[in-house]
């Protein structure tokens, strides 16, 4: 008891939760490596679809639809794809749902662990790099078809503005200056973001642009769901500014979605 306590407890080399997990309980690390040849899993697994982020005047807006798709079937209608990472940043996930959610949980714990041990927050850049390392860790699984592609965004105290980071499967980290979308409907969402985005959108406008883009993605992509007025399922939208992490309330999202649909009906009729 005594020796193991010391080895685990007295070691100051790391403030990283992932390293701690690797040393203490490697079986809890979210890795899905199987022996032998890399191959696509024979079973269909749920995939999260469209997520996006765009900058606004005071920070950054992130949004995602709520559907997970399993082959040609809908796996879940109310899955959450945009998560609070900490007080000033959020992570949105597209790709294999299971590993994605594990990665989010590990990432959230990593940030909180660092904050508690060190007594201060990692910089936004540091968080983005940490996430890149986690995606790289997932590479063997990605080769077998369990791809996880997040977007990470937050408010950067050092530069005084919102920042958006995107990734590829190998953990490559890139920064986008204005807006980005990914997932199965990502291309369509990117197109409408390109069309609607301008610099200095205020919060209200940016939320609307995000919802327009998701609605466009849902129109073009079978994997993405638009707002569902019958079941009352709406995209999740988060706004991050210097002072606040805000989850946009569902009735506001409903109201804006209704306005978008009303406008489109009008345009179609005329």
């Amino acid at each position: 008891m005594h020796e193991s306590w010391r080895s685990g407890f007295a070691n100051y080399l790391t403030t990283s939760f992932v390293d701690l997990l690797r040393a203490e309980s490697p079986h809890l690390l979210p890795t899905f490596v199987t022996e032998g040849e890399a191959e696509v899993p024979p079973i269909a697994i749920p995939h999260g679809t469209t997520i996006l982020a765009l900058k606004c005047r005071d920070g950054v807006v992130m949004a995602g639809d709520r559907q997970a798709t399993e082959g040609f079937q809908i796996a879940h209608r109310r899955i959450e794809k945009v998560y609070k990472a900490d007080e000033t940043s959020a992570i949105a996930i597209a790709g294999a749902a299971g590993p994605s959610i594990d990665m989010v949980r590990l990432f959230q714990t990593e940030l909180e662990h660092y904050e508690k041990v060190e007594g201060e927050n990692l910089s936004l850049e540091g968080k983005a790099n940490k996430l890149a390392q986690m995606i790289r860790m997932n590479l063997p699984a990605a080769m077998q078809g369990l791809v996880v592609i997040p977007i990470f965004a937050g408010y950067d105290d050092k530069t005084g503005q919102g920042r958006i980071f995107m990734y590829d499967v190998t953990g490559g980290r890139y920064e986008d200056l204005d807006h980005y979308a990914t997932g199965s409907g990502g291309k369509d969402a990117r197109n409408s973001l390109k069309r609607l985005y301008r610099k200095d959108l205020d919060r209200q406008e940016a939320v609307r642009v995000a919802l327009e883009a998701l609605t466009d993605a849902a129109e073009e992509d079978v994997g993405t769901a638009g707002p569902d007025f019958v079941k009352g399922i709406f995209p999740s939208v988060k706004v991050i500014t210097r002072t606040e992490f805000e989850e946009v309330p569902e009735d506001e999202v409903r109201r804006i979605s209704e306005a978008i649909f009303a406008q489109r009906r009008e345009e179609a009729a005329s």
């Binding site: 685990g8 407890f9 701690l20 309980s25 714990t109 909180e112 041990v117």
Partner: peptide
């Protein structure tokens, strides 16, 4: 301080597991 960090580790590991 050693004990404090050990505590954070204990708690985060447990909460994650």
């Amino acid at each position: 301080e050693n004990l404090r960090i050990a505590g954070v580790r204990h708690a985060d590991l447990r909460g994650y597991a």
